[in-house]
Design a protein around this nucleic acid. Sequence first.
DNA 1: TGGTTCACTAAACGTTTGTTTAAGATTGTT
DNA 2: AACAATCTTAAACAAACGTTTAGTGAACCA
Lengths: 205, 205
Amino acid sequence: MNKKVNIKRDGPESRRRIINVAVRLFAQHGYAGTGMREISAEAEVNLAMINYFFGSKKGLLKEILDTFYAKYIEIALRELEQEGQMEIKLERFIHGTISFFDTYKDYLLVTINELPHDDPEILEHKASWAQKMIAVLEREICRPLAFEKGTVISSTVLGPLLTATMASRFLFAPVMDQVRPENIPKESLEEYSEMISTSLLKMIS
Amino acid sequence: MNKKVNIKRDGPESRRRIINVAVRLFAQHGYAGTGMREISAEAEVNLAMINYFFGSKKGLLKEILDTFYAKYIEIALRELEQEGQMEIKLERFIHGTISFFDTYKDYLLVTINELPHDDPEILEHKASWAQKMIAVLEREICRPLAFEKGTVISSTVLGPLLTATMASRFLFAPVMDQVRPENIPKESLEEYSEMISTSLLKMIS
DNA sequence: TGGTTCACTAAACGTTTGTTTAAGATTGTT
DNA sequence: AACAATCTTAAACAAACGTTTAGTGAACCA
């Protein structure tokens, strides 16, 4: 009758809990610096459950990276692949991305910090996502820019540049939070988003 | 008579070799992902020599980070702390930094990827270096910018933004090298440096 | 010549690592 | 009630981890 007498046996709930904990710990101590026992303890699941759900520690990382890349490219497609003035589309893309980075800041940190992770299996996924992003930027930003304004900038430069610029607040947050003087509060996300947006738009003008 | 009959006993030479190998491996596999046996093997020194010279693995990382931070702040002081027009000083700082990043790209990757490394001892060093950099930027860029042009941008935003933008090529290199189509060659460092420089100068204009 | 310092080595220390295994519990289906 | 599928467990595995120790020479200075 009462289905929830026993707290255990949550099924996909455990799976989700593992991911959430893993993302947080990977962002804090890095992938290699986080032990599976630490994850299982904080997620309150048995150690073996991680391998049961994800096959291996690497499988867990792969799923985290894929989740981030998929959402990122989805925003790019949604905001850039439509009719309209390029500057306006770019501005929406920037605001959307920064808002996404803020919500998924741990995912962002894991993704960036594992960029040099040279495992062939992981590298393949990263490259295919990056490929798509570069293609969108080439089509929607670089080509109009060269055609309308004569400004030539390679998409393989613009891609990293855009991402790094938008991510700067989150990337350096662990250090900057230590540095910022107490009397000067952190800028709000809206202020930051506006600054980056106007800066980047000036950049391509 | 012949002092070099025995190849061993190189003294500080071994020390330098350990650092060079460690920087490369830390950049490739991360700090936690690199074993001391891997370092000692590639540097062709005994395992115990690392602890002999640096006290611990953490001591080795600390020295690598300190080397990078010291050189970076030295460039900032040299190029920004002098008389002259702000834009020209900033341009020189950007070119100097990018050239430095290129020469020390492995140091750069280690530094950025270990940003979340929350060891108290490491964090202290990072924060004190960042503090200095922020102070220079505040004095030499942000204040003139607000005074002369009315453009208000916080140094705690500008610092990360500048560094992330200049580092973007090196940060994403492991992935972008996979993505770039064969027929399109990588931009030269000079081209990249020029692009970033003009972009950033437009940004604050 | 004896002694101190510096550079180096091999071996072992106790932990911790990711993964596997075999068994058990719970669930929905027949 | 029996079945299969799903979820969970404790225990063990070999391998790798960072660190320590005790000892060996070479170099230099007294």
